[in-house]
Amino acid sequence: MAVPAVSKAKVHFFPELGPKGFSNTSGVLKIVDDADGIVAHIPPLRRYARALTGDYAAAEDLVQDTLERAWRRLQLWRQGSNLRAWLFTIMHNVFINQLKADQGRQNQAVDGAEVKLPVTPPQDYRLELRDLNKGLRMLSAEQREVVLLIGLEQMSYDEVAKVLGVPVGTVMSRLSRGREQLRLLMNRASTTTQLKVVK
């Protein structure tokens, strides 16, 4: 055959990086790493979604939509810096869009929850858990996101600011108001109970 022999010389695509450079910089290998990276973040994303929505099916849908977007955009994501923040940002955007889509229903649900709040005495821990869960539903979505990203996902304030696309000062004021409201709601729950117990 007239075709000249293939050069057997090993040629590196990133000569400046030397022989070892390739495995870390190859686009595809990185994408594979990122894909594995995404899988590693699924449990926290799922936990956050469950706490945020307070509903199993809604949370699973939120994770599903987030992952679909993430896989689709993964090829374009080459920053290499903070995969977690990137994924939570996507989830935040999906969540906010859904919220806008059914704003009316959302408000109704909150009203309904408020009426029923302090009913039974918190004599055991389980009840306190339920009160906090109820209290979470009564926060604004913005406050709930901040309280959960910090208190549950243990993100730094800067990271939360990045995920939500707001200044750190805004994060702090939402955190402050959200936590204080939760505290008051839970106090109210236990005060009502004490009254009942005394009776």
């Binding site: 449990p43 936990r47 706490a51 306190e128 906090l132 309280v147 208190g151 936590r179 939760l182």
Partner: peptide, 15 residues
Amino acid sequence: QNKILHALFDSVLAE
């Protein structure tokens, strides 16, 4: 609050 949040939702991690 932070403690209760974990008590409420950490089980999701194991699913």
